[in-house]
Design a protein around this nucleic acid. Structure first.
Lengths: 143, 143
DNA sequence: CGCGTATATTTGCATGTACAAACATACTTC
DNA sequence: GAAGTATGTTTGTACATGCAAATATACGCG
């Protein structure tokens, strides 16, 4: 009875949020592809580039990803020679290598292209509102 | 210079959408835990329960997940004895087993509890609006 | 000082997800 | 009815992610 394009789930925030995240991740990976990095790795590299010496727990907080995820992503970037870790005591500090820093411009550019792409599809005003609303909601939900 | 709780990324839809999806997935998994299923499996089982004989490609469309993902999830539910596949020709049809159907009530209940939880935190009106806006955006972004 | 607790990081394991390719079947057109 | 194309499904492989436990270090208090 009338279930053409609206699924049973479209009223569920879990469902729609997951769907949007998948679409956005695909779009982001496309945008970042010229840098040779996935979207997650690109964002992490930018984070380190903006705050050299940041600790994994700081990255975790900033990116809202679990510490273990950060460990894994950092390993990959280190393996690619884009960042390096310096451990001292219980803390670890992460720095970009010169190669890694050299990528920052193209990452920034890809990022802007990504913004342009989705705001072109959604409208600039709308997409800013949506982003803010989503950000606010995620903060409130995990408080 | 003033970067307390707002990250560099909070203006990026990719970032905020991913963050919200992670939070919501965690919440959903908690809600569905009493059923013994992860949120994805629970939703898939409901989908099959509501349309017995649905094909993987139909599930894929409805859940907005890739066909290969559906294959993997269906395998798991089949292995748990909650659904079964009947292949004929190139098509496959998926049916709930009686055990699987027996779970549908508690899944439905968990789903309502999930709704109650996040709408309690965000406000019912707000969360409905947000869900609709997100759903609309994801549709528009992937055409 | 030394013991208990708190914090930072990593590891083992499991999950969900997708892309590309392989495969299997159906359709179409000549 | 055979060849080429379209559709449905599965497989191989890779990635991102998290939880719980292990590890390592720091801190605080008696």
């Amino acid at each position: 009875m009338g279930e053409k394009k609206d699924s049973t789930y479209c009223g569920c925030l879990y469902y729609s949020a997951s769907a949007l995240a998948r679409v956005m991740t695909r779009m982001a990976d496309e945008s970042f592809a010229p840098t040779g990095l996935s979207s997650s790795l690109a964002l992490l590299l930018m984070t380190v580039h903006k705050r050299p010496g940041i600790q994994p727990c700081g990255i975790s907080e900033q990116m809202q990803l679990s510490p273990s995820t950060i460990t894994r992503l950092v390993e990959k970037l280190e393996h690619k020679g884009l960042i390096e870790r310096q451990s001292e005591g219980r803390t670890t500090r992460v720095y970009p290598t010169s190669v890694g820093s050299g990528l920052s411009a193209s990452i920034e550019e890809a990022w802007k292209k990504l913004y342009a792409k989705y705001s072109g599809l959604l409208g600039e005003e709308k997409s800013r509102e949506l982003t803010a609303a989503i950000y606010e909601a995620s903060r409130r939900l995990e408080g």
